[in-house]
Design a protein around this nucleic acid. Structure first.
Length: 288
DNA sequence: GTGTGTTTATACGTTT
DNA sequence: AAACGTATAAACACAC
């Protein structure tokens, strides 16, 4: 593998696997699902490294989408013309990177590979796809109802099911960190104590120095892989990530909490609980 | 033709 | 050392 012949860190290969990058892209979208071309776009927009050799990494990325069960293909609806399908994250794969490393997961997410109490975990991809498609619809309508002035593209991940506690290293949280945390979070250390989780991420607003987690003039020479910062460094305990939205079951209908009014949706700003991160939170209603 | 999606194979690094 | 996770390449099928 030839090293990129650039001195600038921004042109170096980001320390994230294709799975992480893809998950990032998907989570950054309002509907939590993106067509392939938009995933490409997201990555190229934010990681200059990937503006070259597109054929190589895009092939790899497609391979990852097909090969990994954590990605679900969602057929386009008739009102969504375009090429290819949408891709989403399996609802139960949120803890893939629980160890804090975005280069390597602790274990591969495999549908039906575990005797999980979570029906989503063992659900067929088609079921999950159907669920996600419905979810996306609701998410978008909730967005329009509550965040009409919200910035496009990013930060929309703040609209999530109410009971979905997010580990600070969950993809969604990391993406969301570009936005200001509206309130202090006593449970987990956040921007002042955590390393910048996505130091390579560029894009509109991403380098805003006033942002809570933005690095000030990233020192590329002092580059330390995330792994050593987060994983080896034990910045945070590796705790389970109860991202599972507490579904009563995955059937052909939309789970009850998704059918609630948009008011039941709360921001994803890293929620913490005095009860500790390992527990699934009760649904909370946050009105801002 | 091009983009998308799937599959197979191989190599390499990391974890157990 | 074996198993696992990831990166890369390549071939093929299919849809637009």
């Amino acid at each position: 593998m030839p090293r990129p012949g650039r001195n600038t860190y921004s042109d170096q290969k980001p320390p994230y696997s294709y799975i992480s990058l893809t998950a990032m892209a998907i989570q950054s979208s309002a509907e939590k699902m993106l067509p392939l071309s938009d995933i490409y776009k997201f990555i190229m927009d934010r990681f200059p490294y990937y503006r070259e050799n597109t054929q190589r990494w895009q092939n790899s990325l497609r391979h990852n989408l097909s090969f990994n069960d954590c990605f679900i293909k969602i057929p386009r609806r008739p009102d969504q013309p375009g090429k290819g399908s949408f891709w989403a994250l399996h609802p139960s794969c949120g803890d893939m990177f629980e160890n804090g490393s975005f280069l390597r997961r602790r274990k591969r997410f495999k549908v039906g590979s575990m005797q999980s109490a979570d029906p989503l975990m063992a659900s067929k991809p088609q079921d999950a796809a159907h669920f996600l498609q419905q979810h996306a619809k609701l998410r978008l309508s909730a967005l329009h109802a509550h965040l009409p002035q919200g910035p496009p593209g990013f930060g929309l991940s703040s609209v999530t099911p109410p009971s979905s506690f997010k580990h600070p290293f969950a993809i969604e949280n990391i993406i969301a960190r570009e936005y200001k945390v509206p309130f202090p979070t006593p449970g987990y250390p956040l921007h002042s104590q955590l390393p910048p989780a996505w130091p390579h991420v560029y894009g509109p607003g991403m380098m805003d120095p006033s942002g809570p987690l933005t690095m000030t003039a990233p020192d590329y020479s002092a580059y330390v892989p995330l792994k050593s910062l987060c994983h080896g460094g034990q910045t945070l305990p590796a705790v389970p990530v109860p991202i599972k939205p507490g579904l009563p079951g995955l059937h052909t209908h939309i789970p009850a909490f998704l059918a609630h009014s948009p008011q039941s949706l709360s921001p994803t700003s890293p929620q913490t609980s005095p009860t500790g991160p390992g527990e699934t939170l009760q649904p909370t209603v946050t009105v801002h």
